[in-house]
Design a protein around this nucleic acid. Structure first.
Lengths: 140, 140
DNA sequence: CCTCATGCTTAGCCCAACTAACTTAGTTTT
DNA sequence: AAAACTAAGTTAGTTGGGCTAAGCATGAGG
């Protein structure tokens, strides 16, 4: 039973499902969906093109078009054009979008922080140690 | 910077997003969706009632009704009745459903196992240690 | 009985993903 | 230089998965 990858895989699968449910519970009732917040986050460091956004979010272009349409209607992002290539549309945060992003991120981090603060210091250290391992999953 | 819950929260948030994308990539193109496999898994140890399934999957009853309808149409589950209360519908796996569940679980665990086998023994131990901590999140 | 609560389904809505088809703008080929 | 191809986005249409509201039985209590 010691260091059995299959047994570990089963336990990981169980926890992943738990986390998915947790995330859904957290994002219920928010003004924007978690996908939309994710897109706003991608725009934090400057304008991006549609293809870049779609690829980063593992989504097809039409899906991203619809998301950006909604965010544009809500006044949170603005479309622009690339002077060197008239085919590409750029997307950037509006002032309101940036503000919304900061607010959401603050409260979300605050929630998570509260959960983590309820753990022992040792548990937090255990979690912190595992993060780089989680990051390696799916990179193969 | 040592044991800073806020800083840890930010890193955890990043990894959670990574895991969500990973899961979506894994379940793309499967004959059933991950939700439907999840429901099949709940039926592994015998019949359940609709309310129990809905609660376990953190979903409203109508949503579960639709899911069970689809699984029933596909011949993977069968509805029954509770002899002691004519209001409740029970749901159980058909032989085909059980077979499908076993196949899917095998291949999914196999995939995860392959990923985990690519890690070092120490990394697996780190991950295993963190699982109980992850399980505690959201229980507050 | 009549009323109320419970378990489930139906109907109708919205969001998020997909593919297919189209438009427009660059790039290559001849 | 014109034709053919490729690339970037958008639009249209479908599917899945979630929700609430409303309806229909059935069970439980006055």
């Amino acid at each position: 039973m010691r260091d059995d990858p299959t047994h570990l895989a089963e336990q990981v699968a169980v926890e992943l499902r738990h986390l998915v449910y947790l995330l859904r519970r957290y994002s219920a009732g928010q003004p924007l969906t978690s996908q939309q917040y994710g897109v706003l986050g991608s725009l934090e460091h400057g304008p991006r093109r549609m293809t870049a956004l779609a690829e980063e979010h593992a989504v097809q272009l039409p899906t991203m078009t619809v998301q950006i349409n909604r965010l544009e209607d809500a006044g949170l992002v603005a479309r622009g054009t690339d002077p060197s290539d008239a085919r590409v549309r750029t997307v950037e945060l509006t002032a309101e979008g940036r503000e919304r992003l900061q607010n959401v991120r603050r409260t979300r981090i605050a929630n998570l922080t509260r959960e983590l603060a309820a753990l022992t210091e040792e548990e937090r250290a255990t979690l912190a140690a595992a993060l780089p391992v989680l990051a390696k999953l799916g990179r193969s």
